[in-house]
Design a protein around this nucleic acid. Sequence first.
DNA 1: CTGCACCTTGACCTATAGTGGAATGTCAAG
DNA 2: CTTGACATTCCACTATAGGTCAAGGTGCAG
Lengths: 129, 129
Amino acid sequence: MRIGEAAVATGMTTKTLRFYEDRGLLPPARRAPNGYRDYGDETIARLDFIHRGRIAGLTLAQIGDILRVRDAGHAPCFHVRDLLAKQLADLDRQIAELLTLRSAVAEYHETVAAADPVECDPQRICSYL
Amino acid sequence: MRIGEAAVATGMTTKTLRFYEDRGLLPPARRAPNGYRDYGDETIARLDFIHRGRIAGLTLAQIGDILRVRDAGHAPCFHVRDLLAKQLADLDRQIAELLTLRSAVAEYHETVAAADPVECDPQRICSYL
DNA sequence: CTGCACCTTGACCTATAGTGGAATGTCAAG
DNA sequence: CTTGACATTCCACTATAGGTCAAGGTGCAG
C-alpha cells in the first residue's frame, strides 16, 4: 500500500504520515524497489491508534510514549491509565482557568457595554479595561 | 526614564518592551543623545493598559487594534466592547470543547482503569483507547 | 512520446509571546 | 584606567502539528 492510499484509508495526508515517521511514531517504512514507501495493515492500525489518541487530546509525544511501550512488548494499559489521569487533571485545570477568565471578561464586558465614551480618559487608553 | 526603569515599573522585562515596540504596540521610542530609549509616563500608562489587556486574555494583536483606535483619536469603547463580546464567545466555545473532551477522556479512563492488560490485543496497541 | 498522477527529499513557513545569546557601545565610580 | 551595570542591534530558538514550495524520479494511459 503506497502512502497516498494509506493517507486516504486513515483520513490523513501524505505529509502527515511522513511527519509521523520523522517523529518516530511510525517505524521507518518498508520500501518498494522504486523507493516508494510500502505500508501494511499493521501501519494502518497504528495510524488509527494515533488518530484515536489525538481525538482523546493526547499530544504526539504522549502517543509516542505509548507506542514505545507497546513496541517494547508490554501492554501499555497502566501507562495509558496514568496518562489519561494526568490528562483529566490537566483538563480540569484548564477548564477552571478558562472559567475564571470568563468571569473576569464578563465583568469587563458589562462595564464597557454600559460605558459612555465621552468619559473615557485618553491617557488610560480605555477607562473600562 | 530608561528601558530598565520602565521594565521595573511595569513588571516586564527590557526584552518585552523592545518586543512590543517591534510589534507596533509601542511607538518608536524617543532616544537620548546616547541612543538609549527614553520613556515618559504616557508609555508606562500604555504598558499598564497592555498588561490589563493580557490579563483579560486578549492577544497582542487585539490590544494593538485597541491602541490604534485610541491613537487615531477615538475612544475605543465600542471596539473594546465588541472585542470582549467576541472573547466571551470564544471562551464559551473553548470551555464547551474542553468539557466535551473531558467527558470522553473520563470514559476512556474508567474503561482502562478496569482493564486487564492480558486481554489487550497488541495489534490494536491498546484495546481501551 | 507525452501528459498526468503519484512519489522522493530538503528547506522553509505558520501562529503566539516572548527568551537567550553574541558582539558592541555608554557611563559613573573606584 | 578599568570594572560593572546598563544599553544597543540582530539572529536564533522555544513548543505544537503539521503545511508549502521546489526540483526531480516513477509509472501507466493515450
